[in-house]
């Protein structure tokens, strides 16, 4: 039941994200589509992230989209969860709106202004360290990209977290095999990703990042044993739209009218 519900929500998030990007002619659709299932599994499964995520005046559970360029997908999720209004969502990328193409701390439900890669894990480390000092148990989830693992600061944070025995951090790495201009494997030697994180002292899983039962399983296991956990999510850039899947053109390109209609039809929506 839960899985079917999440799938439906996921389709809806995909549809709204494609629509948003089509309307505003903005970039990063492929990067949104690869991580939507991860976002949905976290926000809608009610296992660890419940209500008041990133409630800044009294911070408890947090979520950081470290790959900030997937902001449109996050905004759609935040709207569906009631953090921002539909009216506000429609201001995305428009003048006078905080809904820029990367998340801004001024938005309700957004904890940090991400967009420059390699910062999210350190941010979460600081927040979780604060909990450790205060002897509080809150959960801290983040979504990073595989390209983001190019950044040295990502590995500084990875060492710091396990070195200082900071718990309650769950990192999903959206390994869609592409970064802005090339295949990740053609740029740097990222694999074996799982072993790299293991070597840094993290509990690791390698799963299909579009499979809800795998995603839910990992979140449940983390809840039972909240050691620093890295989930290598094997994903498809552009997931859900046949002509976008695995085509890096859609890192920057936004669909025109014809492409938009074709795309939403594939995921079961009409204009």
């Amino acid at each position: 039941m839960q899985i079917n519900r999440l799938k439906k929500i996921s389709d809806k998030v995909r549809y709204e994200t494609i629509k948003l990007i089509h309307k505003t002619k903005t970039a990063h659709l492929g990067s949104c589509l690869s991580c939507i299932d991860i976002l949905v599994a976290n926000y809608f499964s009610n296992i660890i992230l419940r209500s008041n995520v990133n409630f800044k005046s009294k911070l408890k559970d947090t979520f950081v989209l470290s790959k900030g360029h997937a902001a449109p997908a996050l905004y759609v999720v935040l709207q569906m969860k009631g953090y921002i209004s539909k009216k506000m969502l429609n201001t995305y990328s428009k003048p006078n709106s905080y809904l820029e193409e990367h998340p801004n701390i001024k938005i309700n439900g957004v904890l940090v202004s991400s967009g420059s890669l390699g910062h999210g894990l350190s941010y979460v480390a600081g927040v979780a360290l604060g909990d450790q000092i205060n002897k509080k148990n809150n959960y801290h989830v983040l979504v990073m990209s595989d390209g983001e693992c190019n950044e040295g600061s990502t590995w500084e944070a990875a060492m710091f977290i396990t070195g200082k025995k900071i718990n309650n951090i769950l990192a999903f790495i959206d390994c869609n095999k592409w970064q802005a201009t090339e295949k990740t494997s053609d740029i740097m030697n990222l694999d074996p990703m799982k072993q790299k994180w293991q070597a840094f002292g993290w509990k690791t899983y390698e799963i299909d990042g579009h499979n809800f039962s795998s995603l839910i399983n990992v979140i449940k296991k983390f809840k039972k044993n909240p050691k620093p956990t890295a989930v290598i999510c094997r994903t498809i850039k552009g997931k859900g739209v046949s002509f976008m899947e695995n085509d890096n053109l859609w890192h920057y390109r936004s669909p025109d009218k014809k492409e938009y209609l074709k795309a939403i039809k594939e995921i079961g929506f009409k204009k």
């Binding site: 941010y123 600081g126 604060g130 710091f160």
Partner: peptide
Amino acid sequence: GVAEANMTTVAAGLALKGF
């Protein structure tokens, strides 16, 4: 450690927690 970039952002995270 000798990881200043991480240190700076960890500080920011602590500041978000009121430190």
